[in-house]
């Protein structure tokens, strides 16, 4: 059980440490919360008024119109569905495969270990470039397809190495006893190792999910002509771009007077877009967080 339940004698030094620690972390919170509150405040502030600056953690002229401005765009619903789909599918498939490969690499007796790990790790440090990458995807017939969101990044070297380093810490004896019982390696991985890796799997799942949720460049490159495959981030990128061009002469050609030019300041809209991106992540977060923040108690269930 969690060690917070039985408190043995607490030394004076520890008490001081505890207090200092709380104060320190409280300071950290107040500093790191600021940018986020600032974004929130600006997103809720009247867009013209925002130009005057000096908005910190509270809006000066409260309004929701920046959010309505975003929501009026088409395709947001389709984009949202696709973003959720790619996040869920990409995360489940990605984490499973990465954990599986990591498992083989954690096995000191695996002959192909060196070859597999070297081949995979090196991919972190080079790239063929934009054009070859695009041509490959095209030749594989993945353009205009949902799978282009999932397949290219499925085997992430970084994640595999992190999972492997976690697995290295697990006692090998667990696997041996299962082997005695005649279980094959996949069964050992699936039945014994995987459940023990919850904290690291939750972390990796978070990384993959955030990556999937935030990416827009692949939609832009490969699926921009197909509205049914659009993603939320790409749609938001487009809105961002639309509001930024408010200043260009050509765009204003038909906007008839100063009254209309730049009615919407890009600032507030951009902040609202940031919020729309982040809010779903924040909502899902507590469900993931419990795995790596209270790992102790959950980890203890393993036996």
């Amino acid at each position: 059980m969690s060690r917070s339940y039985k408190l043995p004698k607490v030394s004076k030094g520890e008490k001081v440490f505890e207090i200092v620690n709380y104060i320190f972390l409280f300071l950290v919170i107040s500093i790191t919360l600021y940018p986020f509150l600032n974004v929130l405040a600006i997103s809720l502030n009247d867009s013209t008024d925002t130009v005057r600056g000096s908005i910190y953690i509270l809006p000066r002229e409260f309004t929701l119109s920046n959010y309505f401005e975003i929501l009026k765009y088409d395709n947001l619903v389709t984009g949202f569905i696709n973003s959720v789909l790619r996040t869920v599918i990409g995360t489940v498939l990605g984490v499973f495969i990465q954990a599986m490969v990591a498992f083989t690499l954690s096995r000191n007796d695996f002959q192909g270990r060196k070859f597999v790990s070297t081949t995979i790790v090196l991919t972190m440090y080079f790239s063929g470039g934009l054009i070859p990458g695009y041509m490959l995807v095209r030749d594989l017939g993945l353009i205009d397809s949902f799978w282009v969101y999932i397949l290219p990044g499925l085997v992430s070297a970084f994640n595999i190495i992190i999972i492997r380093s976690f697995m290295d810490g697990l006692p090998y004896s667990l696997q041996e006893s299962a082997k005695m019982d005649g279980a094959n390696d996949f069964v050992i991985f699936y039945r014994i190792i995987l459940p023990l890796c919850k904290p690291v799997l939750a972390t990796i799942a978070l990384f993959v999910a955030v990556g999937q949720w935030n990416s827009w460049f692949d939609t832009y490159l490969y699926n921009s002509m197909n509205e049914s495959l659009t993603t939320l981030q790409y749609e938001l990128m487009k809105i961002m771009d639309n509001t930024s061009m408010g200043g260009s002469q050509d765009a204003n050609m038909m906007r008839h007077n100063d009254e209309q030019v730049n009615r919407v300041s890009p600032q507030s809209i951009k902040m609202a877009i940031t919020m729309v991106t982040v809010i779903p992540i924040i909502c899902v977060y507590p469900f993931v967080q419990k795995y790596f923040i209270q790992g102790m108690t959950l980890g203890a269930v393993k036996q």
């Binding site: 013209t48 008024d49 130009v51 005057r52 408010g246 200043g247 260009s248 204003n252 100063d258 730049n262």
Partner: peptide
Amino acid sequence: DYLMANPQQALREA
């Protein structure tokens, strides 16, 4: 001129 549109507008509205 295009760098002036936002501040001019804000001043006007204020």
